[in-house]
Write a protein that binds this DNA or RNA. Sequence first.
DNA 1: TATGCTACCTAACGCTTGTTAGAATTTCAA
DNA 2: TTGAAATTCTAACAAGCGTTAGGTAGCATA
Lengths: 201, 201
Amino acid sequence: MAKTAGKTQDLGGAKGAQLSRELLIKEAARLFAEKGYNKTNMRELAEAVGMKAGSIFYHFKNKDEILQAVMHKAITLLVANVQSSIGDATTPMERLRVLVRMELGVYLGEDADYGMVLIHEWRSLPESLQEELLVMRSNYESYWDTTLANCQQEGIIKANPKIVRRMLNGAFSWAIYWYQPEGEFSFEQLVDEVMAMLVVG
Amino acid sequence: MAKTAGKTQDLGGAKGAQLSRELLIKEAARLFAEKGYNKTNMRELAEAVGMKAGSIFYHFKNKDEILQAVMHKAITLLVANVQSSIGDATTPMERLRVLVRMELGVYLGEDADYGMVLIHEWRSLPESLQEELLVMRSNYESYWDTTLANCQQEGIIKANPKIVRRMLNGAFSWAIYWYQPEGEFSFEQLVDEVMAMLVVG
DNA sequence: TATGCTACCTAACGCTTGTTAGAATTTCAA
DNA sequence: TTGAAATTCTAACAAGCGTTAGGTAGCATA
């Protein structure tokens, strides 16, 4: 998959820096999610993308910036998904359901690796590299805040919107560790249960 | 604090292995919570307890077993607290509130370091050392399961008890990262808000 | 064909780390 | 007081790590 042709050796520049960079981010997300950031070394990541460890530093200044790129993509996914799906809903209750389904979808679906890294490796990222991500994240969270505030105004939820948002944040990220798609509950059932947990009446 | 007398030098064995071991667990919990398991090295931990790195291995076989000991204490705290407080409540609703207050108290109170490590460093612990802890944890979780099941029977909550338990697990552990005791909400207000979020009507 | 840029490789450096063996010191019972 | 057991120190090893400098092969332009 990482090899361009049938040959094992793929010497010399070929596929363009952009593609290699994206592949690195993708494989890094997979490895960081599976083994953790600290226990994934550059040689391992290099092998996963079909190059040698030293070559990675042509694309990234250091290991931390790879982690940053992975997290950047994670938040980008969240923001992109919320923007493309929030328009489908009109009432606050519907928007809440859309948000629940969307965030759980990012954490539990095919992009789960990115969500895993975003949640679990936050403290592995030096503070100097956190700033941009924090801005993006608070932008994303504003969708939640306004929706939950509207829900409270209509009496759909009773608790404080800010607290509910924080709690859901944790609850959903934790789902990575226990939810099994082949298990007792389908994804849509999970969404239903969350809504049943939140909404009064 | 780690020094027995005013002297900086405190050579030789003195205070007994039990005390040193407990101090090591305590300081390890603090450091692991603050900096993370991987970024805390033995020399740092040793300095925190007033000994040299090599001496730690008289009390623990390796670094992993220190992490295990910290987590063991964390679960022990949870189990001890639930057993001593659950008796105060009679109705399912009261028991639920007791559990909420108790778990949040462990995560946010003076023993927060242990909870932090238990939650955040689970994947740093080799699987071979997880077994005992998993048994203890599932024992602890059974208190939640029965209480939530009773709440559902009485119509206090609507969603599936198992899912609710998982969600609260994540929600509460996440609170470590955002809750500030000096902030907008007092601890008891936080408990109230959680109950308002969960309970129908 | 010559030139320069792009993308990758090779080989190694230097630092940190967990861990260990053996010596040294303290404690405590006899 | 003496001797053994308990506890800590010293000093170093060996392995793994991120990172770097310099070399090399392919490709585009002229």
